[in-house]
Structure formats: structure tokens, C-alpha cells
Design a protein around this nucleic acid. Structure first.
Lengths: 152, 152
DNA sequence: TGTTACTTTATAATCCTTATAAACAGTGTA
DNA sequence: TACACTGTTTATAAGGATTATAAAGTAACA
């Protein structure tokens, strides 16, 4: 299981680097590191999280570099930017289609897979006349840990 | 039709003011004006939109007043805060349950009604163990106007 | 080798939102 | 009415996330 995950991560990173090549985006050490961190990360990091995480490896890296490259990755479809109510955006390496459940108490974000809401898109297209491209959905609630805390 | 809408607006404003009374929130001229603007607005305004719109009536009103009261309205459930990718939040007077379609070209926001996605909430609760409270969903695409522009 | 375009860095600037403190206004009580 | 109490607005400062800018660095390629 763990071995499988490691292998998947490598594959995902390799695919991402291939995408960079195909799109003509240079693979710099910083870009490599940011992508690697995102692929391995299960935590939906903010730009600052990434910046801090790579501080050790790249003592001179600028915050702007993180932001610039996250924008590049977003534009070529490698990364999704999540804008919730809180102050800063979170970034998510795109693998398969999934949604997020967010704990309103501790802000934990958990993935869950669900068949795409195509029928909602079709309905929206029908009533509004829009050409639909995609949608986003998040579900809010309390995670098991925080629910248990309430019992004390 | 128009007459009906005017009447509905009055009812909605009245209901909102009642809610303020019940919750023990004072009805100040500024709060009245902000609520009235939100009820009449079909445009999902930003805090700054509201500030500018009421500048004529309240030349001395502070931006902080707008933000403070939008927070109050949100906390008592009169208003919903929409956080999309763009820089500033938009605010939406809550009437009945509806979702939003957003034009990626001109940023227009159109409402559409759709039965709540309860089954998705239940599924998410089942697989993650969360106690679900609510969800959000937005659909993105191109509005008819912008689609037509492409044809030229 | 030299030129060109891209990238990173460092820093400043911008913009949205919140915090703070003083002035103001309503409400209730003696 | 006078007075204290609490909530509200105002004005301004501060905070924090993100973007813009210019200089320095680096890869690609003729």
C-alpha cells in the first residue's frame, strides 16, 4: 500500500514534468521542488506553506517565485486553486476528479470522490444559456475529531 | 410582474428588519440602507460596491461600517458571503436556496434554482464521518453575450 | 560566443479586510 | 432630567495576501 503510493507519486510527478515539457515551461529546480511538494502533500497547502517547506532546500527562494509558479501550474492545468472564505488560497495537485469536505472547526480538508455533477451542469446550461466549462463544490461540517471533542 | 417584484422586495426588507429586531441588533440608518441595497441589488455586490453606492446618502460613512454590518448580517443568516477566486468577496441577500453560474469572461453572476444536493451531503458524511452542515457549489462557463461575441 | 527569452530574486506597492480608539447615539434607571 | 451603560459609527492605522517591478541570473540556441 505504502509502496504503491510512493510509486503513484513518482508517476504523478513524472506526468507533471512531462506536461511542463510539452507546454514549453522550463523545469527549474524550484519548479521541480514545488511540484514534488504538492504531489506528496496531503494537506492542501497555502503558498506560504510551500514557501516555508522549501526554505531549507532553497534559502534564497522568493515568495514571488512560489506565487508565479503556482499560477503557471494553474494555467496549464496541473494545479487547482481553492478559494474558501479564509484569508489565503490553497493549492491542490490535480489527480482524479474529487471534492472536498471542510471541517468548520479545525479547517481540516478531506477529499472524497463522487461522480461529477453533470446533470446539474446541463440543467444550469439549459436555464441560463451559458456554455458550461466546469463547476466547484465544497461540503462543510465537523470532522469526527472535533465532533468527539464536543462530547467532553 | 414589476409590481410583484417591488412588493416582494418590500416584504424581504421587512422580514430582514424583523430578524434584526428579534436578534437584538439595532436598526441604524446605515444598516437599513445596506440591507435595502442588498435586497434590491441583482448584482452580488462587493463591500466596496455597497460603499460607493451609499456614498451619496451617507457622505461620512466609513468602509469599516460596511464590513462590520455585512459580518453582522452574515452571522444572523441574512446574507451570504461568496468567495470566488477574484480578489474581493461578494455578498448575496439570502432568499430561497439557489446556486450561481459565473461567466469566466465577464464575471457576470446568474442565479439558478436547483433542488439541494442532499444525497451528495449524505454520501460525503458516510465516507468521511463528518457531521455535514451545508455545502456550496458554483458553475463556471460563458454567458450568452460573451459566447456571441466570439462569433465575430 | 553571443544574443535572446525566460526565470528568479529582492523589494516595493497594491488592495482587501480587520483592529483600534475616540466620538456619537440610543436605552434604561434613579 | 441627569447619568451611566452599551452598542454603533467614524477615522485611521495596521495587517496580511498577492502582484508588480527591476535587476541579476540562467538556460537555449543560432
Amino acid at each position: 500500500m505504502s509502496h504503491t503510493h510512493v510509486h503513484e507519486s513518482h508517476e504523478q510527478l513524472k506526468d507533471a514534468l512531462d506536461t511542463l515539457k510539452q507546454t514549453g515551461v522550463r523545469i527549474t529546480p524550484q519548479r521541480h521542488a514545488i511540484l514534488e511538494f504538492l504531489v506528496d502533500s496531503m494537506t492542501h497547502p497555502t503558498a506560504d506553506d510551500i514557501y516555508k517547506a522549501l526554505e531549507g532546500t532553497f534559502p534564497n527562494m522568493s515568495v514571488a517565485t512560489v506565487y508565479n509558479n503556482l499560477r503557471v501550474f494553474r494555467e496549464i492545468g496541473l494545479v487547482r486553486e481553492l478559494t474558501y472564505g479564509d484569508t489565503s488560497s490553497r493549492f491542490d495537485f490535480i489527480t482524479t476528479e474529487h471534492y472536498h469536505v471542510i471541517c468548520e472547526s479545525c479547517n481540516k480538508i478531506v477529499d472524497f470522490h463522487y461522480p461529477g455533477l453533470d446533470e446539474v451542469e446541463q440543467f444550469a446550461s439549459h436555464v441560463t444559456g451559458f456554455e458550461i466549462s466546469h463547476h466547484r463544490m465544497e461540503i462543510y461540517g465537523r470532522c469526527p475529531d472535533c465532533s468527539n471533542k464536543d462530547l467532553h
